[in-house]
């Protein structure tokens, strides 16, 4: 079983969301990067862009596939991981750390509570994980 930190929340599209005070940091899970294989390109929104929960905010490309990135919560993008365009492989190496993607100021704090818990996400992946 892939690494699923207990202190994060998860989407069924394999993003994680981490509460950091009144902000939410977003990335993709260890399971997602493993399924994708070598990540070669990451396209992120601009700082200041609005993202909407369950809608695409960016794209991740591996050698074999293109996948949309889905926002776990709605809000405004405060920061993006500027290292990823040059070092997309960071997503494979450290998906929960240096491979983070965007930092969001949520417009609806309640959305975070509707995401999967680590245990729910683990069960979801174990049952096929939408793949």
């Amino acid at each position: 079983m892939a690494n699923v930190p207990a202190d994060l929340k998860y989407t069924r599209e394999h993003e994680w969301a981490k509460r950091e005070g009144d902000r939410v940091r977003v990335g993709i899970t260890a399971f997602a990067q493993d399924q994708l294989g070598d990540v070669v390109f990451v396209e992120l929104p601009k700082v200041g862009a609005k993202v909407t929960a369950h809608q695409a905010f960016g794209v991740v490309e591996s050698v074999k596939a293109v996948s949309d990135l889905f926002a776990p919560v709605s809000g405004e993008v405060l920061e993006i991981n500027a290292e990823l365009p040059q070092k997309p492989e960071t997503v494979n190496k450290d998906p929960y750390g240096k491979g983070w993607m965007i930092l969001v100021k949520p417009s609806n704090a309640g959305e975070l509570d509707q995401l999967l818990t680590a245990q729910q996400y683990e069960e979801f992946v174990a049952q096929g994980g939408g793949h």
């Binding site: 390109f41 396209e43 490309e61 293109v66 997309p88």
Partner: peptide, 11 residues
């Protein structure tokens, strides 16, 4: 043969 200016993948 094409080379992309950035790392986006032309499929």
């Amino acid at each position: 043969g094409l080379e992309m200016a950035d790392r986006s993948v032309a499929r």
